[in-house]
Amino acid sequence: MKLKKCVIGAAVAGLLAGGVSAAAFARDNIQIAGSSTVLPFASIVAEEFGNALAQFKTPVVASGGSSGGLRQFCQGVGANTIDIANSSRPIKSAEVESCAAAGVKSIHEIKVGYDGIVFASRADKGSFALTPKHVFAAAAAEVPQNGKMVKNPYTRWTQIDASLPDQEIMLVIPGSNHGTREVFEEKVTHVGCDAFPEIKALEGDAKKAACNNLRQDGRVIDIAGDYTETLGRLDAQADAVGVFGLSFYDQNRDRLKVATVGGVVPSLQTVASGEYPVSRPLYFYVKGEHIGVIPGINEYVEFFLSEAVSGSGSPLEAAGLIPLPDSERAQVLADFAARKVAK
């Protein structure tokens, strides 16, 4: 009996020790994490990559948001850190510094295309023709009236502009963990804020506060989760207007009606031409230290940027990515080949 117990004890101890000693796990597929906007595109490329090239395993793509992905990316060098971070915004200099502190010194920026951000309401509700000014007036904590800043008095869209549908104001926007939120602020609320001469006249912090403070009375709802959650809000609150990615709207056109911004209908063409104002470039960042260590990184980047994968008429375009112009794509590829480092 004693012997038996000893054997079991030794087996358990051996197992734990095995776990510890296997500290240097090798990895033979690419590990990617980051922006949930880039995730569907990166997943499609990963799958096609694994299918097209028999010598490489299919990369694994995790979500976590642009900031979350870059934080993981900057944890250091080694098989238990990710190789590529997807991001819906350019890397910040603070992030480059924290990366360098952890030993990640050669970060290669790859721009993959553009993404449009749209306002959409329920298909059975009124059509919106919005301008950034309208959105700011609906979302700001304080708006100028008769030369003074007053607490936002608007409760219905018609009070802002008679051309808008007679619906309660209810805006469902991405939470601050999303890269989309920055684009929403930069391309919509800040532009809308400048449209008021009273605010434009303000200086420094006062202006910043006037432009950045959103109303807290429950009419602007932050969504920390994904667009499905925003869609769920629209199901529950029929009057709400939500912020979505163009591709999400496109795949749920039966339930959603898209709003024009500045009179332009968002579409692949209007975003690509720059006519539709609310768009942003999408990126991924490659850890230079892992090229040649984890097999396939070089090939993955080239595969991603090939015309058949992310050019016009490609599966990524069908999934809603707005492709880079050919010349720009060639430039990105050339920069990567020259191992240009992001700063």
Binding site: F25, Q31, A33, S43, G50, T58, V60
Partner: peptide, 17 residues
């Protein structure tokens, strides 16, 4: 622990993603 990743292959061993 990163198990929410998109994995397009069947795991062969418990060490695979």
């Amino acid at each position: 622990i990163g198990m929410s990743a998109f994995v397009a292959t069947l795991p062969g061993t418990p060490l695979d993603q």
